[in-house]
Amino acid sequence: MTQRDRFEAVYDAYYPAIHQYAARRTSSPDDTADIISETFLTAWRRIGDVPEGDRALLWLYGVARRVLANQRRSATRRAVLVDRLRDELAAGRPVTPVDLEHVQTAFDALPGRDREVLALACWEGLTSEEIAEVVGCTRIAARSRLHRARKRLAALLERRPSSTIAMGEA
């Protein structure tokens, strides 16, 4: 398999997941397109470093996470690569349902680290071990962060009189 074949396979397999990852964490199609573009550009440049199998997705999440954190944007690159993608992404961006606004408010009030591990667990469906690989910490630290994040969110939600929240173990 050539490097081009490998990249095409990685792109086709994981474009939907990286698209979702980016869309969940950005507020505009521009930013979503940037994250997707930068992430796969990195994968192309370093295709030899991309792990085989499903671990490739965790590797891509790790790259996307850093792209997001660093907000590295290249206007030139975006103009060339992602303008059309932005238009494709712009259609029908969903909004939070009204009856979940209190959950969104509580979620937004959490520290960034808490939001990150909760999102990776609940949106990307990652285990603690996989979260550790994406964010670059130990499995124990990831478990601990996730546990604390759940407890903090439960505490915030319990301040609403009508909420009854059950905390369980993943």
């Binding site: 349902p97 979940l100 949106w123 969110l153 939600l157 059950a166 369980g168």
Partner: peptide
């Protein structure tokens, strides 16, 4: 999945 996870999952804007 516990209640907290279900609530967070419901916030997913790109399910």
């Amino acid at each position: 999945m516990n209640d907290i996870d279900r609530l967070v999952k419901a916030l997913d804007l790109a399910p």
